[in-house]
Amino acid sequence: MTLQISLSEPREVRLARSGDAATVWIDGLPFPVRTRPDGGATEITIDGRREKVWVVTDRDTVFVHAFGRAWALDVINPLEAKLREGQGADSATAPMPGVLVALSTEPGAEVVEGQVVAVIESMKMQTEIKAPRAGVVERVPLAVGESFGQGAPLVVLASEEAE
């Protein structure tokens, strides 16, 4: 199956895996990769270079921490995207367990899709949490400094019907 990963623009990505060896095609270019578990991370070897990679998924978003940087990748399955058209999420949820380190909104505030509404810390790395859609913040269930589990709502928007 071919999926798209969206950073600033969608990229076509395919993966073929056999044991600890894999080939990742990005926009038709092959990249041979070897992997092995390394604690809570995965060690990958690309062109003889070894790096630790942490990967956490939350629905169609994959959070990757590697090479001293962090990325949030939106995985777009064309069939699932077609089935979900018109459905909006009502909360920005935690992709992994952690601690809330900053809030940039409050109940009653209007937010736009993609606006940073919170910052969390997990695995000693900070991740920006963005509004899943435009709307009005209904509630913020946690205070800065509080811990949470994966999937916990961090910012809840009023339902689209209520707006």
Rank of each mutant, 00 (worst) to 15 (best):
V156E: 02
G151W: 01
R36P: 05
A70K: 12
A66P: 09
E146H: 08
E160K: 15
A89L: 13
T23E: 13
P97V: 07
K124D: 02
L73T: 03
I46R: 14
G135W: 08
F148Q: 03
A41M: 11
L15T: 09
A66V: 11
G19T: 08
S104V: 04
G68Q: 04
A102M: 10
S91K: 13
V112P: 06
L7D: 10
P97S: 08
P132A: 00
V136Y: 01
E80T: 10
I129S: 01
M125F: 09
Q87N: 12
P97F: 02
A66E: 03
Q87T: 11
I46S: 05
T35S: 11
E121Q: 13
E138Q: 13
A16F: 12
I129K: 08
Q4N: 12
G19R: 09
P153W: 05
L79T: 10
S91P: 10
V111W: 09
L29H: 15
R49C: 04
M123I: 07
V111Y: 05
G135D: 01
L73A: 00
T93K: 14
Q4A: 09
A81C: 03
I44H: 00
V56F: 11
A162W: 12
I120A: 00
W25T: 08
A81M: 12
I129M: 05
E160I: 10
G68W: 06
R84N: 12
P132T: 03
V111L: 04
W25F: 11
L15V: 15
V101Y: 07
P10R: 10
S122L: 06
E161M: 10
G135E: 04
P32Q: 02
Q115G: 05
I44W: 03
E121N: 07
I129R: 06
E121L: 07
Q87I: 12
G68I: 07
I46A: 06
A81W: 13
P132Y: 00
H65L: 12
Q126N: 09
A131K: 10
I26A: 06
I26W: 06
Q115S: 07
E51P: 04
P95D: 00
P30Q: 04
V144A: 04
T42P: 08
I26C: 07
D20Q: 13
G114E: 04
A89M: 12
Q115A: 10
F31C: 11
T57Y: 00
A131L: 05
Q115I: 08
R139V: 09
P95K: 01
E113F: 00
G68H: 10
I76S: 04
A158E: 15
R50G: 07
G68L: 05
V155Q: 06
V116R: 15
L29C: 10
E163M: 13
A131Q: 09
G40V: 08
F31H: 15
D27N: 14
V24I: 15
S104H: 15
G68C: 03
V117N: 08
I76R: 14
L103A: 02
L7H: 10
G68E: 02
